[in-house]
Amino acid sequence: MSDSGTVDAGWEHFQHGADIGIRGVGATPAEAFARAGMALTAVITRPETVQPRQSLTLACQAPDLDFLFLDWINALVYAMATEGLLFARYEVAIDNGRLQATAWGEPVDRARHQPAVEVKGATLTTLEVRQLADGRWLAQCVVDV
């Protein structure tokens, strides 16, 4: 039930009642995570309006890929909230349950970005990281807005 985004871009939204599901698909879990990060940006604003002017490094660690994805999205939510940033691009590396990432973006410009809604947090609802039949990886969860 794709709602927006394109398969080409590797991310999409899916519907969940009052909230929004974010999904990334890529050749590796790391790529799926990065693309889900774009889906997260798209919850708030049109990603193409965000310029990669500054960067931030992020790291998290979790007992499995599901929780690592939860932590990754929550790390982005936290960085956006505390730094007042929106992100345009991500580079993610995952090694043995540890995630290292760089996120590029810029401070929120309300006139230009028209940010619709802030994300409160990533939920366990439909949280899933798995390999698809074609070998690609999918990472998804619903975010509370």
């Binding site: 929550n74 939510v77 947090g121 366990l124």
Partner: peptide, 17 residues
């Protein structure tokens, strides 16, 4: 606001684990 959201985020994870 953010304080409540963060409390919810952290304890949801901890309780699930």
């Amino acid at each position: 606001r953010g304080l409540g959201h963060q409390i919810g985020t952290e304890f949801l994870r901890e309780m699930a684990l």
